[in-house]
Amino acid sequence: MSAGPGGHYLVLGAGGLGCPALLGLVSAGAAAITIVDHDVVDASNLQRQVLYTTADVGMAKVDAAKVRLRSRDPRLHVRALRLRLDATNLAPLLAAQPPGTIVLECSDAPDLKFMVNDTCLAGQLPLVVGGVQRWRGQVQAVQRGHACLRCMFEGPPPTELQEPCSLVGVMGAAAGLLGFWMAQLAVALHAGEPVAGTLWAIDTRTLLPQQMRPRPRPDCPACGAARST
C-alpha cells in the first residue's frame, strides 16, 4: 500500500515506537514527514531505536532521523522539530499542519497521549496512538465518529503509578512490531480505510493479539464534545 503523493505525517516522538513507524511510513511511500522530539540519541536505547547507530550518540534524534530517512528516499520532504511538547505548544503545532495530515503519537508519556487525543479530535486531525512497555503494547487509530483513547481508558494513570520505559524496559522487537503497526494504520487512514475506533493489543511472548471495538462513550469529554460540534 502506498501513501501516495502529498501524504503528510506528523510523528510525535522519535524513540522506540517512532523509529520503526518512520521507517514504515517511508517504505509505504510517504511524501512528507514532520518529526517532533526534544531528546538526543543515547547509546543505552539503540536496541529499540533502530534508526540510529553509535555514530549518532549525542545528536538530536530529529536531526539523526532526518539524515537516515533522506538517505533511504532523497525525494522525501522531512521537517525536523526539536521541541518538548506540552500544553502550551501542542495546539499551535497541530493547528499549523496542512490539510490531510495524519498524526502518530509515539511518545512514552501517558499524559501527552491523552492531550494529543483530545487536541486532534478538536482539530479534526486523524491520529494513530501507540504504547509499549516490556513485551506488551497496543495501537489505536482515532478519528471523529469512532471510539477514542478516552473511550477506552478515560484518562492516564496517576503520576505515581506511571512506569517510565527507562525503569521497566522495552523489548526491542516489541517496539518494532508496534511501531510498524502504527505506520500501517496511519497509511490506512490516509487511504480512507475504516480502521478508526479499534484497539489492538498484543503480548509478544505469546503473539496472541486482542481486538476491542467499543462504541463511543456518550459522555466522553474528548470525542463526545467533538461529535457535538
Rank of each mutant, 00 (worst) to 15 (best):
L199W: 03
A65C: 04
G130D: 11
K66W: 11
S44M: 10
V62F: 11
P99L: 04
N117L: 09
P110G: 09
T229D: 00
T53G: 15
G16S: 04
M59G: 09
R68K: 13
Q143E: 06
G4S: 03
L17P: 06
L161V: 00
G16M: 09
P74W: 06
A21C: 14
R144H: 11
E193C: 07
V36K: 08
L10S: 03
L85D: 04
P126V: 10
L104G: 07
H8W: 01
Q97W: 10
W181N: 03
C220W: 08
G6P: 08
R150A: 15
L208H: 12
A43N: 03
A186K: 02
A64P: 10
C148R: 00
A95N: 05
A96Y: 07
H38T: 07
V195R: 00
S27T: 13
A225N: 00
G176Q: 02
R70F: 10
M212R: 14
Q143T: 01
D73W: 02
A65N: 07
R72S: 14
D111S: 11
A64E: 11
G24P: 10
A201D: 05
A14S: 15
L207F: 15
P156K: 01
L125F: 04
L149E: 00
L69A: 02
E160Y: 06
L17W: 03
L12S: 07
A109E: 15
L17V: 05
L51D: 05
G172E: 02
P218I: 02
A91H: 04
L125Y: 00
L17N: 06
L189Q: 01
V62Q: 06
E193Q: 10
A201N: 01
G130C: 13
T198W: 01
L12N: 00
